[in-house]
């Protein structure tokens, strides 16, 4: 029911229809028999036949992707989750370890931390997909790469271009291995990747920025027919492994063992000591 004025039904018709009933196209468990996922039998069509990554994408998008694309994504997940406890999401996982938090909460807390517009590969790659999707429309209309980039808002004198910078300003070591992998698995560079390469060259020359893994992945996934929302959903948990690694190490230590801070290590910038006036 989409109309706001449908006189054939009572105002609560939409909700009345849905009470005490779920209609789904996603999946159904029939206890003792089978589980259906997107029209496929989990036990007969998928189990022991497809990789976990392909099943993951099937659940989220309804697409049973090729073995090669499944492999590409799985390899991509490998480099989205470094077990370095300085990285923000992993630092949260490590702190959860020091607190003796449950492993589920530690994973989720760290993973939630990576739901960030500046890093993490889920929200950030969604934003990169949005940028590249819109940029290609402009580019195909004849707008130059220079004009596309220069029209973006700036931050510290550089274009704020998601997917083409990193919070830590170093070359992204993951790009070249991804280019090699893409070629080995038989993926040609599509129109989004070709545009991303042009943007990369321009911002590298002019601003010393460069494509990062979010930007690269955004172009690749767009070329593979995924949209921004699908990318966000597929990648939502992509940092969990590194988070858990850092959790595990710190769980073994006594509380307050991770980067202990003395009281005066915090730079207090607020009001001086005072009393409440009666």
């Amino acid at each position: 029911m989409s109309s706001k004025n449908n006189e054939n039904y009572p105002p609560t018709h939409y909700w009345d229809q849905r009470a005490n009933k779920i209609e789904t196209r996603i999946g159904k468990w029939t206890g003792g028999e089978d589980i259906i996922i997107r029209d496929k039998s989990l036990l007969n069509d998928l189990f022991d036949k497809v990789s976990y990554m392909r099943l993951h994408v099937l659940n989220i998008t309804g697409r049973l992707i090729s073995e090669e694309l499944g492999k590409w994504l799985e390899n991509n997940f490998m480099v989205m989750s470094y077990p370095d406890s300085r990285i923000w999401c992993n630092h949260i996982g490590a702190l959860c370890g020091t607190m003796g938090t449950s492993p589920s909460a530690g994973t989720i807390a760290g993973t939630l931390g990576a739901d960030s517009r500046v890093y993490g590969g889920a929200q950030s790659s969604m934003l990169a997909l949005q940028f590249l999707a819109e940029a290609l429309i402009d580019y195909q209309k004849g707008v130059s790469v220079i004009d596309i980039v220069e029209a973006l808002p700036t931050k510290q004198g550089k274009p704020a271009i998601i997917g083409f910078a990193r919070p830590i300003n170093r070359k992204d070591e993951r790009i070249e291995p991804h280019r090699v992998m893409s070629k080995r698995l038989g993926f040609d560079e599509g129109e989004y990747m070709q545009l991303a390469n042009k943007v990369d060259h321009y911002v590298a020359d002019k601003y010393k920025l460069g494509i990062n893994i979010g930007g690269y992945m955004a172009a690749f996934l767009l070329d593979q027919g995924f949209n921004a929302d699908e990318s966000y959903r597929i990648k939502a948990l992509c940092v969990n492994s590194g988070v858990m690694a850092c959790y595990v190490e710190n769980y073994a230590y006594p509380e307050n063992s991770l980067l202990p801070l003395k009281c005066n290590d915090i730079d207090y910038l607020g009001a001086p000591k005072r009393s409440i006036k009666n």
Binding site: K262, C263, L269
Partner: peptide, 16 residues
């Protein structure tokens, strides 16, 4: 780390 919210005054014998 910087903060305007909270200041902790250490004990005389243990800075943590």
């Amino acid at each position: 780390i910087k903060s305007k919210i909270c200041q902790e005054i250490p004990s005389d014998t243990n800075p943590y």
